[in-house]
């Protein structure tokens, strides 16, 4: 996709301001600084070279040291006064400051004091530069997982060490396994550890609130094939398609579970289609929302959940359905 003109303009003005502060900068370093290719840097310089004040005679134009550029070094010789860095817009400031604040609150457990100090310092600098507009957005991320577990995972990620974890699966089976940690994905609802699992021989997603203990091993992480599977859970298309017909009160299901489709009805009830890999997970969901379930397709799932519920009621010493208030 072609880059939008405003984004390119911001980068070109940024380059001039950066070069003004740093003198001669190798093309390579400029590319790394602005996270673009070397080719893009050269294109940007070519464009800058053509711009200037009306008249566009040689002395009107932004100018570079051509001899230095031959050697791969960019040096501005005439900047036409464009050396002041651009101020952040209100929304730009909101986006970064709110993100930094939420990171400070949620990542504390995984960060050592040195890293926390850097986070605090950049937050102070940005707040000073942008004012208080950033309080418009307030983000609180999940804080699940035991503090000692979070600290161990954070340390292993930074040092690139293997972890031994005790983990409970969604089917309530616990066991130890060794994993090479790749990323700690913190969402608004849950935190997941993305890791290479040596037992499974594949990349796996571990819910941090189900990691019972974690120990940093004295083994460096190995190289693993990079998976393009995202950091969020996306059931594949071969999984079983299940349709739930739900009362309006259960609307959160459509908002928090990855659903294929939602069909609203005039009376406020609705239908959702889900791809279900793990029937244990679906059973858990249906036990939670049973009061608001109008129908389940295929019906074998409803039969299974009802059987499980009756068996549990038996354990409570209660039998059969009765009128309930709740």
């Amino acid at each position: 996709m072609a880059e939008r003109a405003p984004d390119r303009l911001v980068r070109m003005l940024g380059m001039i301001a950066y070069l003004e502060r740093h003198g001669g900068v190798p093309v390579e370093e400029l590319a790394e600084q602005f996270q673009v290719s070397r080719r893009q840097v050269v294109d940007d310089i070519d464009t800058l070279w053509l711009t200037g004040t009306p008249g566009y005679w040689p002395h009107d134009l932004i100018d570079f040291d051509a001899a230095a550029l031959e050697q791969g070094v960019v040096r501005v010789t005439q900047s036409r006064g464009m050396t002041r860095p651009l101020r952040l817009g209100t929304r730009e400031a909101i986006a970064l400051v709110a993100a930094l604040r939420a990171m400070r609150e949620s990542l504390v457990a995984g960060l050592d004091p040195d890293r926390l100090a850097v986070l605090q310092s950049v937050l102070d600098k940005l707040t000073a530069a942008t004012g208080e507009a950033a309080t418009i957005v307030d983000v609180r991320l999940a804080a699940d997982g035991e503090p000692v577990v979070n600290a161990a995972v954070g340390a292993a990620l930074q040092a690139g060490r293997r972890l031994k974890i005790d983990y409970v699966t969604a089917s309530d089976v616990s066991g130890e396994r060794e994993v090479d940690p790749l990323r700690l994905v913190t969402g608004e609802r849950r935190t997941y550890l993305v890791a290479w699992c040596w037992r499974a021989g594949a990349e796996r997603l571990f819910r941090m609130d189900r990691v019972l203990s974690a120990e940093v091993l004295d083994v460096p992480v190995a190289e693993h094939p990079r998976s393009d599977h995202a950091d969020t859970f996306h059931p594949d298309q071969d999984a079983e398609l299940v349709t739930l017909e739900l009362e309006s009160r259960a609307r959160w299901v459509a908002e928090t579970v990855p659903v294929e489709a939602v069909r609203n009805r005039p009376d406020g009830s609705f239908e959702v289609d889900l791809r279900v890999v793990d029937r244990t997970w679906l059973r858990h969901l249906l036990l939670q929302i049973a009061r608001d379930v109008r129908a389940v397709r295929p019906s074998s799932i409803a039969v299974d959940v009802a059987r499980v519920a009756r068996s549990a009621l038996n354990a409570y010493g209660v039998t059969g359905p009765r009128a309930t208030a709740d």
């Binding site: 009802a306 009621l313 359905p321």
Partner: peptide, 16 residues
Amino acid sequence: ARLQAASALDTTPGRT
């Protein structure tokens, strides 16, 4: 109460 609602999932007419 939740379990009782769930135990009726396969019996209520029209639910499946």
